[in-house]
């Protein structure tokens, strides 16, 4: 499966080729218009956003709600391995865990997806055949995104051809920070096209964008360009998913649906390790965008170690006593 590099993709046109959904269909008509739109979005006060996120983190969840929350969180996990050392064996082992996270308890829900590099998407696809678990592949010169557009598009097509039905792309943070918003937009549009039927998750890499104003603007670029999900981070940069960043991104998907009618999913990734963290996110969804997003189709956790903690807590709820690391499987 070879792809000819598309020479057109290398030339930049100031006007976006594909217009966003109304009422935003004219905001990408020029660099200046797009910039004016993005900088016209309400600002985010960092201190206020952090205080709100912290407050949501103090909600107390007990018993029945907690059981539901843990199962929901498990079903939202994109079980991830993104190492240079990944092998087909490692991916198959992860796929097995995805199907049956807790071998001692078959009532444990399966996870939402397995997330791997594109070259291993085929292995994951084969291992997960018939399970309903999605195969997500990172693409577009993940994690840095520093490659030509043509290479990025080829990377996407390759992953899709290998069997990925979800593509996790990274935005061009360099272009974003240089103020070339339309370039960022166009690239996402092109990647979306290259995805075909695969769902597109757009990684903003918020740890590199630094400010919450930038997070909000990048979220809007991704949503306007046709991304199906917006995702915080690659997991390779610290900080990754923080509660204030998630709050701002959830506000973005909330406002976008209110304006366009289109619902966008949200995926925090990296840094979410404990059941407590996961539940804080669910609380935040519940109180920011509402229960419509409390569903694996609309919310995912990009994580690896989180799953084991969720399983330990699940065992604790079921048995009534604390569990230990030997009672869950190593990845």
């Amino acid at each position: 499966m070879t792809h000819v590099l598309d020479p057109d993709a290398l030339s930049h046109d100031a006007r976006a080729l594909v217009a966003p959904l109304p009422p935003y269909d004219d905001v990408t008509r020029s660099d200046a218009a797009f910039r004016a739109f993005l900088h016209g979005l309400p600002g985010v006060d960092q201190v206020g956003a952090e205080a709100r996120a912290a407050q949501l983190g103090t909600r107390s969840i007990k018993t029945t709600s907690k059981a539901w929350a843990i199962d929901t969180a498990i079903s939202m996990v994109d079980l991830t391995t993104l190492e240079g050392a990944d092998t087909p064996g490692k991916v198959r082992s992860l796929a097995a865990k995805a199907k049956q996270p807790d071998p001692t308890d078959p009532t444990t829900p399966k996870v939402a997806a397995v997330c791997v590099y594109g070259d291993l998407a085929g292995v994951a696809r084969e291992a997960l055949q018939g399970t309903g678990i999605h195969v997500a592949a990172v693409a577009t010169a993940f994690p840095s995104g520093r490659a030509s557009k043509a290479v990025k598009l080829a990377d996407v097509r390759d992953a899709v051809d290998n069997g990925a039905d979800e593509i996790d792309m990274v935005i061009d943070r360099g272009a974003f920070l240089a103020g070339r918003y339309l370039d960022v937009y166009d690239e996402i549009v092109a990647v979306k096209e290259a995805c075909g039927d695969a769902h597109l998750k757009v990684i903003l890499e918020t740890g590199e964008l630094k400010t919450l104003d930038n997070v909000r603007r990048a979220s809007w670029i991704a949503m306007l360009a046709g991304g199906d999900f917006i995702k915080t981070s690659t997991g390779k940069i610290n900080p990754a998913a923080t509660l204030p960043v998630c709050l701002v991104m959830l506000e973005a998907v909330r406002d976008f649906r209110a304006a366009t009618g289109r619902q966008i999913g949200m995926k925090p990734a990296g840094g979410i390790r404990t059941t407590k963290d996961a539940i804080k996110h669910l609380v935040m969804i519940n109180e920011t965008v509402g229960p419509d997003w409390l569903d694996p189709d609309w919310f995912r956790f990009g994580a690896s170690s989180l799953l084991n903690d969720l399983l330990l807590q699940r065992q604790k709820l079921r048995t009534g006593h604390y569990s230990g690391p030997d009672y869950v499987t190593v990845d």
């Binding site: 007990k62 029945t64 539901w68 229960p291």
Partner: peptide, 12 residues
């Protein structure tokens, strides 16, 4: 808010 299984139980 529509009903959801995610109701916060009292945490007195």
């Amino acid at each position: 808010m529509t009903s959801t299984p995610f109701e916060y139980a009292p945490a007195p």
